[in-house]
């Protein structure tokens, strides 16, 4: 049912010289959902978004966005999408209101519609008091809300957000996501890149990218449940020493420290994982408390970027 797909890409590939930035990516993103690209810096998230917006030409493969062939009709597509760049791209030396009016005029909204929508959005995004302040003097959270307003004024069907919350405090981030869910409710599709696990958790669908290729995809819950690994939480007074000892064993895939706790990913083939780990630590004499826990998204991420997810 391609009719319900906002984005579909086949073998989407982009090379910069000899560097393979995006490697035969296949995507199917349904309409009216928030879809997240999760991955380390340089994994090809931004390059993929730029190809889907028609800003970069794909070296290979093709993409259909909102039913439009991106390679052929990028300008038709541009009227129906909004793209919030990673870097703040409005004008620092214009006020919030001037920036918004400019964007409204670029999308050729008639004056009444433009001003109505600006007023409505300013209220919803709690920026009314700042409407005459220069964008350059706003805080990270305020600028981010302004940028989102600017790319949603023309009511796009599809919104690309490239690391929208990287310069934003947690409270503003929470609020920002509320806005995103409101928009999805009205039928907008949102593609967002992030490297925050809590944000990835909120997405309806998720693709983990690693070195330009798709390492895993699905809903966050699906991915956690289907994770072919046993996760053991370890509490001990000597986290670093425990970690170093455990990593020597081939059945231990990864050990991550979370505060005073350790998260050990253990081969699911091991029938008694806790006993196995305790055996490894016996010689050192370190006292530990261990229990099996449900995997979290970070565990999924670690597995995916180690190439250990089932295709």
């Amino acid at each position: 049912m391609t009719g319900n797909l906002a984005i579909s890409a086949t073998n989407l590939t982009r090379k910069f010289g000899n560097i393979l930035a995006v490697d035969h990516l296949n995507l199917e993103i349904p309409e009216a959902c928030i879809f997240g690209f999760l991955g380390p810096n340089g994994c090809g998230k931004s390059t993929t978004i730029r190809m889907l917006c028609g800003l970069l030409t794909a070296t290979e493969g093709e993409a259909t966005v909102l039913g439009i062939d991106v390679a052929r009709h990028p300008e038709v597509l541009k009227r129906r999408i909004g793209y919030m760049t990673q870097r703040f791209s409005l004008y620092d030396d214009l006020t919030a209101l001037e920036n918004l009016r400019f964007m409204g005029d670029i999308y050729r909204l008639d004056r009444q519609t433009r001003d109505d929508r600006i007023a409505l959005l300013l209220e919803r995004f709690e920026l009314e008091a700042l409407s005459n302040q220069l964008a350059g003097t706003m805080s990270g959270g305020q600028r981010q809300r302004l940028a989102l307003m600017a790319v949603t004024l023309h009511e796009p069907d599809l919104l690309f957000l490239d690391e929208p919350t990287s310069a934003v405090d947690p409270e503003s981030r929470r609020q920002f996501w509320e806005f995103l869910f409101d928009m999805v409710d009205t039928g907008t599709t949102i593609l967002v890149t992030t490297h925050f696990m809590d944000e990835a958790e909120r997405c309806h669908g998720l693709a983990i990218l690693d070195k330009g290729a798709l390492a895993a995809s699905g809903s966050p819950r699906q991915m956690k449940e289907s994770l072919p690994i046993t996760v053991i939480e370890i509490e001990s007074g000597h986290s670093r020493a425990v970690r170093d000892l455990l990593l020597l064993n081939s059945k231990v895939v990864d050990v991550a420290q979370i505060g005073t706790l350790l998260h050990a990913l253990v081969d699911p083939g091991e029938a008694e994982p806790i006993r196995h780990l305790q055996r490894l630590l016996r010689q050192s004499g370190i006292k530990t408390e261990m229990k099996v826990v449900v995997p979290n998204l970070e565990d999924v991420f670690v597995m995916a970027t180690h190439g250990l997810m089932p295709a």
Binding site: C53, L55, E75, K78, R79, I81, G82, Y83, T85, R87, F88, S89, L90, Y91, D92, M103, I106, Y107, R108, A150, V151
Partner: peptide, 14 residues
């Protein structure tokens, strides 16, 4: 240089 262009070229402006 200021990054405004990346936004501008994503709009329908010719």
């Amino acid at each position: 240089e200021r990054g405004n262009l990346e936004l501008l070229i994503t709009t329908p402006v010719t």
